[in-house]
Nucleic acid binder design. Structure first.
Lengths: 228, 228
DNA sequence: TGCATTTAATTAACACCGTTAATTAAAATA
DNA sequence: TATTTTAATTAACGGTGTTAATTAAATGCA
């Protein structure tokens, strides 16, 4: 094991010969992921058990490790569903041309996604925010990180969402609808507001129904606060 | 053993004879709490281990159960420090007479408390919000619950904080500084905003330094949004 | 074909965790 | 002093994630 050269002449990792078995592997991997998703949706982040996922799919716990590095990677892959659903929801909401209405639609869509996908929202933005690219906002090399993040499919999500917010704010400023200023800081303020309300709506501190009416008040107040 | 009556239960609360031993018990209880606090501050909510608390204080794990019902109660009692510190911080910030400045000071104090007491803030408002009276805001019998909550020392905290917010909003409306409307909804919008920013500042999604500058932007925008 | 090797899944084990029941040792009471 | 109450213990259960060793099946090669 001291040498790193390839001993046998013919290359071991054959590029062919993985039509049948590899397909089966992918299949089992997918069914583990399916079981993990049910487990996560049913028991949440804190109650998510690797051993129960294994039992659910009919294998022993150690088998999971042949398909995922550890529990964290299994959970991360499970969270992918939430990422893409979030993306789709936000992207679909950014249709309005009026920046104010666009912001309102984005805010509402964000809030509704959180309330309607509680487990995923909690995981993505509250319990395991490290699943998204860490420390992007407000760092020194923010621009480069931002560009790199867009290339990384795992972190593209909230970059996209953030870009939509920043874009709407910038459009509003350019159209003279909003006061001048740093668009990123303003967009982050909007993000913080709607995230905070969503988080409260998912906590015992505020009922989702009450939070929904507060959402209107919050978006109204924030958008009015942006105006000249 | 067939009878369910309690002929000679040992739980006879003698009103006397609690001079020496009871003081010692209280002392050990306090030192367990001290160890639990260190443990919580060092390892956070997810890493908080009852067995390590016991080891730290020099007793076996089961001894803890003679002083606390279970891990959850131990943690709850540990969290009390956070409650009272939060109370003091918020209360001290509500001195300004101008409602706008009072709101700004309250918001800043709230944010700074979160950043400077990360573990406690996370526990109180994010991970174990159920430690505060559940479902107070937005419920049907809100008024009665509100009154009852003020009598309950455990839930008085955020009721006080909420009352300060609602009071400032109401004062602003009465002084003609803010638009008319439902003060509670407006106060909840403010709370959501500053809570959201605090939560992001405690997550890898936003650095505390960046969040601090966003805090100014957020409070500016929200307070302006309340104005006529 | 038959033998060797790779691969897939297993069992066994470790170090934790919270919690309950049974048991010992010490203190308080009669 | 004898008895009872109290404080702390040990032993044990069921659960967790994870690593190492082992079996059984599929594949590669002569």
């Amino acid at each position: 094991m001291g040498t790193s050269s390839t001993p046998s002449r013919s290359t071991r990792p054959r590029e062919k010969s993985r039509s049948r078995d590899n397909a089966e592997k992918q299949e089992l991997r997918a069914s583990i992921l399916r079981a993990a998703s049910e487990e996560f949706l049913g028991h949440g982040y804190e109650g998510f058990s690797l051993r129960r996922v294994a039992e659910r799919v009919g294998y022993t716990p150690t088998t999971i490790y042949l398909y995922f590095r550890d529990k964290d990677e299994l959970l991360f892959e499970t969270a992918r569903d939430g990422f893409v659903a979030f993306d789709a929801t936000i992207q679909a909401a950014a249709t309005q041309s009026d920046p104010r209405e666009r912001l309102r639609a984005l805010g509402r869509a964000y809030f509704e996604f959180g309330v309607n996908n509680a487990a995923h929202y909690r995981l993505m933005f509250m319990q395991r925010a490290d699943f998204l690219l860490p420390r992007l906002v407000g760092t020194a090399a923010s621009e480069e990180l931002h560009a790199a993040a867009l290339l990384d499919p795992d972190s593209a999500h909230r970059v996209i969402a953030q870009d939509l917010l920043v874009g709407a704010v910038r459009d509003g400023i350019e159209a003279g609808l909003f006061r001048a200023g740093e668009p990123i800081a303003k967009a982050d303020a909007l993000w913080a507001g709607i995230h905070g309300l969503t988080a409260l709506a998912l906590s015992p501190l505020m009922s989702p129904e009450h939070a929904r009416s507060v959402a209107d008040e919050l978006l109204d107040t924030l958008i009015r606060g942006l105006e000249p």
